[in-house]
């Protein structure tokens, strides 16, 4: 009797996490509060049990996340007794950067990409776990599990280290770092199945509920606080919606849905006809946009 595909994926992810713990001096887990991060954290708890994961969690807070995400994050870290680091790009805050005033590209660059680089440099992390998967996007399909970053946090797709078997080369020089993707070989379906099987807690934003929303450029945007600029006379409307991915609320489109349980969500996800990242404003540029962003240091 051999292992099922989920058991094999789980074992592979655990192996990767232990390798980082054994070989890297100062690792960190990038925790973004979404479902993939939830699975990654769950795997970390399994990998080191009965020890706690031997690294802190780092959340790069753009100050535009859904309020519920922040509550969920703080609760979870407290319940599990894990060290949680939160980093905000204070230069961006002073400048007043936000998606409504500066556009999604600039906002994402300053509050996410630059902020992440700041945090990695500040704490001198030599390895950072990320929850990205190869099935998400074409340029990710070729990225290594242990992905080398220069001292400037750049990714060079043409100069990647060969990665054979489950033997990972973690050697770097001073100032350089690795991004490590333990869930590289998972697909979206695997993630949902695993959440279902392992009963993993995810933010309720994934579940449909009545929420106040407005429409912007064809996207349904939740009015999560009073920073949403409303047209004269415009009123948010209550709609039964949920979110397929979680990010900055002004950049994350909701979908109308009646899915209020996990099986409902999975059912809806499987029957849907557009891919997961479609709700994100960031991917709408040219085909190679993600590859370009990654070279610049976007996770």
């Amino acid at each position: 009797m051999s292992l099922t595909h989920l058991e094999l994926l789980e074992a592979e992810s655990i192996h990767i996490m232990r390798e980082v713990a054994a070989e890297c001096e100062n690792p960190v887990m990038l925790y973004s509060i979404g479902k993939d991060s939830s699975v990654m954290l769950h795997l970390a708890l399994k990998a080191f049990y009965p020890s706690k994961p031997p690294f802190p969690l780092l959340h790069v807070d753009t100050t535009w996340k859904f309020r519920e995400m922040i509550e969920f994050r703080d609760n979870l870290a407290k319940t599990l007794g894990l060290e949680l680091l939160v980093h905000i790009n204070e230069d961006g805050v002073k400048e007043g950067v936000g998606p409504f005033t500066h556009g999604s590209a600039y906002h994402t660059d300053v509050m996410k990409t630059q902020a992440l680089k700041q945090a990695l440099s500040k704490y001198k992390f030599d390895a950072a776990f990320g929850g990205a998967r190869r099935d998400e996007e074409k340029s990710r399909a070729k990225e290594r599990i242990f992905s080398f970053r220069s001292a400037q946090h750049r990714w060079d797709p043409k100069n990647q280290r060969p990665e054979l078997w489950n033997i990972y080369n973690t050697r770097i020089s001073k100032g350089e770092s690795m991004r490590v993707f333990p869930m590289s070989n998972w697909t979206e379906l695997d993630i949902w199945q695993y959440i279902h099987l392992e009963n993993i807690q995810i933010p309720s934003l994934y579940y449909a509920a009545k929420r106040p929303v407005v429409e912007r450029d064809g996207m349904i945007i939740m009015v999560d606080d009073d920073r949403v600029p409303l047209e004269p006379g415009e009123e948010p409307v209550e709609k039964m919606v949920r979110f397929r991915t979680l990010g900055c609320y002004p950049l994350t489109g909701a979908v109308e849905s009646e899915a209020t349980t996990l099986p409902d969500i999975i059912q809806e996800t499987l029957l849907t006809t557009s891919s997961e990242r479609q709700g994100r404003a960031i991917d709408k540029d040219s085909a190679a946009s993600m590859e370009k962003k990654k070279q610049e240091g976007y996770f």
Partner: peptide
């Protein structure tokens, strides 16, 4: 959907 999920969990690789 539950029957589907049950069937999926035993997939090989």
């Amino acid at each position: 959907i539950l029957a589907y999920l049950e069937a999926q969990r035993n997939k090989s690789y």
